[in-house]
Design a protein around this nucleic acid. Sequence first.
DNA 1: ATGGTGGTCCAACCA
Length: 254
Amino acid sequence: MMVASWNVNSIKVRLEQVLEWLDSAQPDVLGLQELKMQTESFPVAAFEELGYHCAIEGQKTYNGVALLSRHKPEEVTRGIPNFSDEQKRAIAATYKDRRVINLYIPNGQAVGSEKYNYKLNWLAALTNWIEQELAQHKNLIIMGDFNIAPDDRDVHDPNEWQGKILCSDAERAALQKLLALGLNDSFRLFDQPAKTFSWWDYRAAGFRRNRGMRIDLLLVSDALSNTTLASRIDTEPRGHERPSDHAPVWAELS
DNA sequence: ATGGTGGTCCAACCA
């Protein structure tokens, strides 16, 4: 089973690139973030033609997440239960014996800002929810744009980013608290090349200079860690014309 | 040099 995650930064602009990637990579599940489109406008027919079901949580202009899948989604959950949020950032579904959660975690703008506090509150609500999900679903996969670089290996220049947004102690501690529930960063279950990133700023030729961060993650529950066969980042689409600023990340599970 | 690019949607916000 191949699972993948991609922040597409507008599904309208990136539709052809996503269809092309699905056709070549053939994942069983693909989580998309930053649709920037209302649910009713989502191009369902284009994905159904490739044999994918769609579960969508969209909104106008900002945010928005979707799960595309070979199998029919069951038990679809939209948003974090019992957490009031205008911003559409979470969707979950069950496929056979596996629960998949797709997240677009808030960016947080700058440490100490109002958006940063929203991010930390969001992460606290997420952790409460995931604790409940894990109690019900041993086989849990959490994917998405976490907007957190787990540690300094995931940052092109750790000194430059020390204590800044995506790297601050409180964000990293929140991620560690989530992992401590019984989840694993699938990428780090394997040897990986140094300086492997999933996001590069559009500005200042970030991709060409590999000034990136690894902020797109695929977490697998303890029950699934021994069944995880590979976890990679496909940087190829980031070099396309009119690319998303994020690359797709994927994992293969037995 | 404290910017820069890109998406949404047309002024200003978000990343």
